[in-house]
């Protein structure tokens, strides 16, 4: 089962796709989110989000700043003020 991942900035919806895993640089340490993660909210440090499209794929890096992550029943949503790449 893939994880639904959304990356949103004030200007637009940057990503909305199904991925295997996302590693987010939380303000209290990095955390990886897989499908079926417990509901969770965290602020995100300015840094790099790594998106793993499938289990063995090379991660894709997205630099974000001013972020906030929310894990709910419908997947992971990252709200970021600025996104690069």
């Amino acid at each position: 089962m893939p994880l639904h991942f959304e990356l949103v900035t004030p200007a637009k919806l940057v990503r909305s796709e199904s991925v295997h895993m996302v590693v987010v640089p939380g303000s209290e340490g990095e955390f990886g989110v897989l499908e079926g993660h417990a509901p969770f909210m965290s602020t995100v440090k300015d840094g790099v989000i790594r998106v793993y499209k499938s289990e063995n794929a090379a991660p894709e890096d997205i630099a974000v700043s001013g972020g906030f992550a929310e894990v709910g029943a419908n997947g992971l949503t990252v709200l970021a003020e600025h996104v690069e790449g």
């Binding site: 004030p10 939380g26 303000s27 509901p39 909210m41 965290s42 709910g72």
Partner: peptide, 29 residues
């Protein structure tokens, strides 16, 4: 409330403090 307990990191208050200015910015935008 979908029954699940949401975990916060750091705690609710800290997140709120961080989100307030952001909320203001979004409203202005």
């Amino acid at each position: 409330d979908d029954g699940a307990v949401v975990e916060y990191e750091p705690d609710e208050e800290t997140i709120l403090v961080e989100l307030l200015p952001r909320y203001l910015r979004t409203q202005l935008f």
